[in-house]
Design a protein around this nucleic acid. Structure first.
Length: 478
DNA sequence: CTGGGGAAGGGGCCC
DNA sequence: GGGGCCCCTTCCCCA
């Protein structure tokens, strides 16, 4: 219903074809009920008109399949169409307009169009990724939010199932007293279950609270820790320059290029944008699409993504169109698939590189290496206290927990730590000598790294939910 | 409360 | 495509 509100707010000309509809004063119902039922009826009317092809003034071509729709409705529900139709409206906009997509399949667009006209989103495990990708492309934040909620719920329930399995196994081994909490059965659904997300008040889950974004604004460009709970949420600054510039239109005035995208299933134009402008065609690069519902690993996600292609359409003659890979979860685009894979980790929360010394985990090997060298190896030849440059002779490495840093001899004397390794940890703490003859306090974490001494051991581990729970993570900051 | 510095995280790009 | 380097931004801690 926001859409209708939006349409009113935009002062749209509103050729809805609702002939005979009149405002009828009704004293028996509350204003909100009237409004709700009116909006519902209006939406039904529009949907009916769309299905009958009545008053449709916009054609959308998706991989050869034609969809009829109303310009006003598309304008009100999609940032993409808003941008597209705004530019068209300036030139008059009386004649029918059209848009062509090959970024997503007709089936996916049909799901989205049904949502636009009915408020019901048919999400399934086998289409959620593609729907989200398409919604991201079309800048429909509501749909993205629903998809995220769907994925999150899938993972929550999977995690709960796993946890329950574990608990059951533990109970079999260590039967709990019957007085304890029995654990209320939770609603569970299979990943193959089809979801219907009601856009509005209803019994279905509403995930809009997870994606509260002002209308008419693109989704935040970064850091949506999608599927996993407990990841830190760091909204990035909006970067309008990273918004994909979509162009595509027939019947629209202007010099915009027509871009076509492929889902990768059709080899003819696989990933290669065909532009009506004289822009060169970048080499095709795309992966095949086969959606999987559980996308908690960057690799998995990456492998299951629909072809993430996009072309940043450039109208500036000085610049050449460049092939970009678009993240399905945000507006970020990258030049290389490998970079996209790396980027996806910031959405999945996957941290495959744990530090052997402190257990902290990192998304990238280089970050782990940098962390280890800085924190645990005290590689910086700088006195931490006075910031002066120190050498092996003029300074010593001291340790504080698993942290190590250097102090110059003067600062060592000031702090009363004239022997390396004795600073800031009590004599009662067990220590061990490393290869450099430095004493380390022995902790559980250090025991893990004892075999390796101070050497960095790169260990790629499974980033399971269990481990995510074990490690210290910061709560999601909505 | 504020500013500075260190650590972490992410992007671009080269090898 | 992976590894790595560089750069920049953000976060966090501390004085």
């Amino acid at each position: 219903m926001d859409m209708l509100t939006d349409m009113r707010g935009k002062g749209s000309s509103g050729e809805h074809g609702l002939q005979g509809q009149q405002r009828v004063p009704c004293s028996s119902s509350s204003p909100s009920e009237i409004s709700s039922s009116h909006q519902s009826r209006l939406l039904q009317q529009l949907d009916q008109q769309r299905r009958q092809g009545l008053f449709c003034d916009c054609s959308v071509l998706v991989e050869g399949r034609l969809f009829q729709a109303h310009r006003n409705v598309l304008f009100a529900s999609s940032g993409y169409f808003r941008m597209l139709l705004s530019s068209g409206a300036q030139g008059g906009g009386a004649q029918p307009v059209g848009a062509s997509f090959e970024v997503f399949s007709p089936e996916i667009f049909s799901v989205i169009l049904d949502f636009v006209y009915s408020g019901r989103l048919e999400l399934r495990s086998d289409n959620v990724i593609e729907v989200m990708s398409a919604a991201s492309y079309l800048q429909m934040t509501d749909v993205i939010g629903y998809c995220k909620g769907f994925i999150r719920s899938s993972l929550d329930i999977s995690a709960k199932d796993e946890k329950e399995d574990e608990e059951q196994q533990q109970q079999q081994r260590y039967p709990a007293p019957s007085s304890g909490h029995t654990g209320a059965p939770h609603a569970s659904f299979s990943c193959a279950t089809s979801w219907r997300v009601q856009n509005g008040s209803g019994a279905q889950p509403d995930y809009r609270h997870q994606q509260q974004q002002p209308k008419d604004q693109p989704p935040p460009p970064s850091k949506h820790p999608l599927p996993q709970e407990g990841m830190e949420f760091r909204p990035g600054k909006p970067r309008s320059s990273r918004q994909p510039l979509h162009t595509s239109l027939g019947g629209l005035e202007g010099d915009a290029a027509v871009l076509q995208f492929s889902t990768g299933t059709e080899g003819d134009h696989k990933g290669a944008p065909s532009a009506s402008s004289s822009s060169p065609s970048p080499s095709a690069a795309s992966s095949s699409s086969s959606s999987k519902p559980k996308a908690d690993k960057a690799d998995e996600l990456y492998a299951t993504l629909p072809t993430i292609v996009g072309v940043v359409g450039l109208f500036n003659q000085d610049e050449c169109p460049s092939m970009r890979f678009k993240c399905p979860f945000c507006t970020h685009t990258v030049k290389r698939k490998a970079d996209l894979k790396r980027h996806l980790r910031c959405h999945t929360g996957e941290r495959p590189y744990p530090c052997e010394a402190c257990g902290k985990r990192f998304t990238r090997l280089e970050h782990l290496r940098s962390h280890f060298q800085t924190i645990h190896q005290a590689q910086k030849l700088i006195c931490r206290k006075c910031k002066r440059h120190v050498t092996e002779l003029s300074g010593r490495v001291v340790c504080e927990g698993t942290r190590r840093y250097r102090l110059c001899n003067d600062c060592l004397l000031e702090t009363g730590c004239d022997t390396p390794g004795s600073a800031n940890h009590s004599a009662a703490e067990p220590c061990f000598e490393d290869d450099e003859g430095l004493s380390w306090p022995m902790t559980d974490e250090d025991e893990l790294a004892e075999d390796s001494g101070a050497d960095l051991i790169i260990q790629e581990v499974e980033d399971s939910d269990e481990e995510m729970d074990r490690k210290e993570v910061k709560p999601v900051i909505g």
